[in-house]
Amino acid sequence: MEEFKLKFYAIYLVFAVVAIIFSMYVDIKKKHYNSISTVFALALFFVVALLFGLRNLDVGSDTDIVRVQFEYHDKIDFGFQFVFDLLIVVVSQFTDNYHIFLLVLSLIFTGLIFSSILVLSKRTDLNIFLVSFSFVSFYFFEQLGINIVRQGVSLVFFLLAVSLYFKNPTKYKYWIIPIILGVGFHITTIIVLFVFGLVVLFKKLKIAYYYALYFLVLIISAVGGSVLSFGPLLSYFFLVDSQRADFYINNENGLGYEVGFKTQFAIFSTLFLGIFTFINAKILYYENESYEILLKYYMVMSSVFFLMFQIPFSDRWGMMSWITIPFLLAPLFSINKTAKFSMGTLAFLIFLFVFFSIYYSPK
């Protein structure tokens, strides 16, 4: 694990230097040079995919589970998460090396993020490499890439669907297909799609109501309220993850997962909400409907996350809102004539990377 971390830090350091150069071009020269930044972004994701895919079994909590699933592919019982199962069957026809399967998963994970950024860049003024680098800067990127891989791939399918929807909402087949594939990787993504669908359906609803919901739920969570308060209705809610329903509700198996209000997560989410509010008001002047839709989704999904603090694995629900953070930060990496935020934002992201690397390092 230590060797993996050192390699990851080395990759990050090399590309951080590239990011600094691009941020100066964006802020000072007001040029993206996206033909070049695209190549560097592709290189970044490819190198990271190699590192993630060729990892040892002691790297990532679910790595050995994925290995077992792959090696016993003949015992697969297809269910709701049929796309993941189908991928195992297909890859197993060509190799019995589980590292190849992990590499395929990693290439899909990073490739979908890269594709989402490319699609988003067709509608939004952004530097492709800097947005790509921002993904790698967040600690949840590594978690999704090596620990909860199925959810990671599922969520980036959602990102691709969102990008395609914003590009052209009327071309249904282009964004519905990623949605189906995402759910086929991890069933809990149904909740993500449900929340996003509601936000789109009620997109005319004033954003002030979403702020009210966010802070109301945050207060309720702080005083001990949670999804467990729904009582018998909770079983129906967890139909999307029925295998863990009893564990969530009754904390079965006694594995000692910490539950309760997560101050650090609440601060993290609210800090970025403040940044997004600034972007929406001072950079986009409340004129970008797509941005507001994504911001509203972030607030609603964060509210759901706050209600999950009293159950194990609550951080996995946080990923459902955090995965959109790099997209919501993207306007800060633009050549907007009235703003010079790229270098400052990059410095902040590097600080977060270092901070969380130390925070989550073995004590």
Rank of each mutant, 00 (worst) to 15 (best):
E2F: 15
L13V: 13
V14G: 14
F15L: 15
V17I: 15
V26F: 10
S35V: 11
V39E: 08
F40A: 12
A43M: 10
F46I: 08
L51N: 10
N56A: 07
L57A: 10
E71Y: 02
H73W: 06
K75N: 01
G79E: 05
F84W: 02
L86G: 08
F101K: 07
L103C: 04
I113T: 05
V119T: 14
V119Q: 10
V131P: 07
F138P: 06
Y139T: 08
G152M: 03
W175H: 02
I176K: 01
G184D: 06
H186V: 02
T188A: 09
I191F: 13
I191H: 00
V200L: 04
Y210V: 11
Y210T: 01
V217L: 13
V217S: 02
I220L: 15
S221H: 10
G231R: 03
S235F: 06
Y236D: 01
Y236P: 01
F238K: 05
F238G: 11
V240R: 02
N251I: 03
N251Y: 08
N251K: 00
L255Y: 06
Y257H: 03
F261H: 03
K262R: 15
L273F: 07
M299N: 12
V300K: 15
F306G: 08
L307K: 03
S314D: 14
M320P: 00
L329A: 05
P331Y: 15
L332R: 14
S334Y: 09
I335E: 06
I350W: 09
I350R: 04
V354M: 14
F355E: 06
